[in-house]
Simulated scan of single mutants.
Amino acid sequence: MSRPASQRLKIGLSACFQHADPERPLFKGKTLQYVEQSIAHWLMSAGAMVVMVPCPTGETARGDVSLAHYADWLDGVVMHGGADVWPGSYGEEPLQAAWMGDRVRDLYDLAVVEAFAQAGKPIFGVCRGLQLINVAFGGTLYQDISTQVPGALVHRNAETYDHHFHDIDLVRGSHLSLLYPGVARARVNSIHHQGIKQVAPDFSVEAWSVPDQIPEAIRRRFIRGQAFIAATQWHPEFGSISEPTLDPNPILRDFLNACERAKNRPLRGHSPFRIRDRAARLLRHALLRRR
């Protein structure tokens, strides 16, 4: 029998942005926030209810709903893939104009991570989500792997997109490797040109790309009482019938089990920033300046 809504996990999904465009014929001049269907359906495949976490600030903002309200109400959050991370978010200048990223979305994503971290709720990141989590906790990125890592694999093919693959090595003894007993090497999709350069303090790499050794999965080191935070550079929600890729279900169950545990036994919150709610204030100010 199907479980009632009251017994299902409520999982937040960060929003993707299309900023106001006066040339767009539909929703002309309006800011769009949306989710990509595959990742919502992946979470729903395990019975979770998925809720987009909209940005609560901007030129049309009304009311007093905040990201902290969502973090208090929901059982965990997944940070979406999407646009490049703005290099200024990790203290660098863009090496090319094409790698400017999306500063407003960065501030929104950082505020989401901060709110859920403060609430002690599990956080899982996918692709951009991995990069954003790494930056939020003090790590840095390669702005463009092919430019900055000599001899690197091609990690993104715009033509084949989610049908572009490479191998990864799971770190022996890592939590991720325990989810896949007997699996040392696996194949995953690869849809990114930026990647982790310096891993954030308190995080461990759980998988590396082969053979160029770009971090492909990270997890916050276990500290008693702190919530689950993990991420993959690949998109586990994108299935493949053309390649035998790593089964995404153990990763999903691991995240949702962490959400279930946190729901039944709340954990203490911890902000990745020195000043509580700093990212939310920066986001509000940035959006006010855009008016």
Score class of each variant (00 low, 15 high):
Glu59Gly: 01
Arg291Cys: 13
Trp99Tyr: 12
Ala279Asp: 04
Asp75Tyr: 04
Ala280Gln: 10
Leu132Lys: 02
Arg253His: 15
Pro4Lys: 15
Met79Ile: 12
Ala68Phe: 00
Gln198Tyr: 07
Glu59Trp: 03
Ala46Pro: 08
Val50Gln: 05
Ile275Asn: 04
Ala186Ile: 09
Leu176Trp: 07
Met49Arg: 12
Val51Thr: 08
Ala262Leu: 06
Ser209Trp: 12
Gln33Ala: 14
His19Pro: 02
Ala46His: 05
Thr245Gly: 00
Ala207Lys: 03
Met52Gly: 10
Thr140Ser: 15
Ser177Phe: 04
Val113Gln: 03
Thr245Cys: 13
His80Phe: 07
Asp72Pro: 00
Asp144Trp: 08
Ser240Arg: 09
Ser146Leu: 11
Asp247Ser: 07
His193Cys: 00
Arg224Pro: 02
Leu176Asn: 12
Asp162His: 05
Ala15Arg: 08
Asp144Gln: 11
Ile251Glu: 01
Gln7Trp: 05
Arg265Thr: 11
Gly101Leu: 05
Arg221Lys: 14
Trp42Leu: 02
Val51Cys: 12
Thr57Pro: 00
Ile251Thr: 01
Pro4Ser: 08
Pro22Ile: 08
Val35Thr: 13
Leu283Phe: 07
Leu178Ile: 03
Ala279Trp: 06
Asp144Cys: 06
Trp42Tyr: 13
Gly101Thr: 02
Leu288Lys: 12
Glu23Gln: 10
Lys197Asp: 14
